[in-house]
Amino acid sequence: MVRKMLGAVFVLLALLATPASAASPLTNVSQQLICQCGCNMTVANCTHQDCMSAPAMRTLIQQKLDQGLSEEQVVQYFVTEYGEQVLASPPKKGLNLVAWILPFAVIIAGAIIVYLALKKWVFQGRTSQVEVKTEAEEDDEKYRLRLEQELKQFGERGYR
C-alpha cells in the first residue's frame, strides 16, 4: 500500500519534468515572467489598468522573439536585465532546489513514519487480541444476548 503510494509519487514526479503547453511562444514566455508593477502576477495575467510594466514587457518579449531568440533565450535575457526575481518560479538549481524538493522529501519522510507507526499499531493489535478476557462462559452468553438486542435497538445511527 505505502509502497504503491510512493510509486505513484515518483511517477508523478517524473511527469513533472515535462510540462508541455500548447500556447504561443509569447504566452509561454510571459507566463514565466512576473509583472514588475508589484501585482505579483505573471506578465500574462496582470490586468491592472494602470500597469505600465506588463504591456511593455509583452512588447519586448515579442520583439526578442521576432529577432529569432528562442523562448529560453528570451527568458534568460530578462533574467540578466531584471535579476532572478523576474522569474515566476525559482529556477531549479542551487538553493532553489530546496524549495522544489523539500515538499516531496517531507512527504516521503512522513510516509515512512506513517508506515512505521502503522506497523507498530498492527503489532499492538495482534498482541492485545490475545489478552481479551474470556472468563465466566455462562455470564458471557447472557451479555451476548443483551448485545444482540441492544444492537437491534441501536438502529442505524452513525458516528455522531
Partner: peptide
C-alpha cells in the same frame, strides 16, 4: 529564505505552486 541565504531576491509564483502541488 533566499534573500537571507543568497542575498538574491526571487519570486515564487503560480508555476511553482502548480508544479509542486499538482501531483500532491
Amino acid at each position: 529564505i533566499s534573500e537571507a541565504v543568497r542575498g538574491v531576491k526571487i519570486t515564487v509564483g503560480a508555476p511553482f505552486y502548480n508544479q509542486v502541488n499538482g501531483p500532491i
